[in-house]
Amino acid sequence: MSAKNDQLRKIARTLLAEGKVKYFLGNVRGADGFSSKPTTARTPEEANEFVWDPSCVNNMASYLHEDKKRVLKRGEEPDTRPIGIFVKGCDSRSVALNIQEHIFEREQIYIVGATCEGVVDVPKLKKAWMKRGLPVAATNTLQLSINGDEVIASFDGKQEKFAKDDVIMQRCKVCRYPNPVIYDELIGEQVEPKPDAYPDLEEMEAMSPAERWAFWTEQFSTCVRCLACRNVCPACYCRECSVQRSNPAFGPRTTPTEKMAKAQFSNKTPTMEDNFNFHMSRMYHMTGRCTNCGECNRVCPVGIPLRLLTRKMDKDVRETYDHESGLDTEPKNLLAEYDDDDPEGGFL
């Protein structure tokens, strides 16, 4: 457990001290003791805070885009050194996707990969913690690790065991890529992937269309459009988003070209219909690109099961076109390619 921490810290420290990377993206312990907090280390000392344990839920790949979006100050020379990043198995696919889509070149990212047995769902762990009446203040020294079917939390020299299935993220239960697909350095032993199945979709698949519609209507109507699902997504990197435009006043003299350039696909008003529009747009934009890291589902403040959408999409894409994004660095994009023999289903 702490050996993994040390390994990560040592790698990051060395990279920063030698000036091989401009900064390093990783997790530190959050203030509540349970969770981890994404951060950027710019000096070797900051790298000493890094942790790698089952609380590292964050997908650091989404922070790569900051670098592209930053506007240089006048006269500032761009730093061409690579960015150091810590990734788990699922995150490494997101990095690979960014390389596939030429957002970054392979040399621009220094990837420190870690094999992962799953990460904990912090709210669930907190609940279990409170239920057992464990001291809250003890979390300052909390250390988490996974051993077989148990999540072990050690604090103050004591140990507390939780069943892995109870406190682990839903997404980790069906994870097929626990080992990084690309990396420069690797931490940990290879982990056995979970079987290729979609048990999480079965319930929804059994529903009738009307039931599904009722389900999604209720879910979408609670959306507050905080856009966390979009912002956290490692595949969303546009400078200007098609669903978030300031409302341009169209007058009688607005030309069609102007209207086209500023087409408004989704209103800012979070009514059920507009939310539906937003989520469908988001889902469609992720088609064949989503790497199934499940972050959108985690960040949603009102608990919309967005992963039901992305998982279904993943299933469709794999069944129909046998395509999976972010497995290597070869340029590849489902919707920008075609095959003469693609299936014809559904055309009149």
Partner: peptide
């Protein structure tokens, strides 16, 4: 550093009051 730029902290804040006017 860790901010992803979503609006959760402000939209769920009981004292935040910023608004925008939209013509639809």
């Amino acid at each position: 550093d860790g901010c992803i730029g979503c609006g959760i902290c402000t939209l769920l804040c009981p004292t935040c009051f910023c608004f925008d006017i939209q013509d639809i």
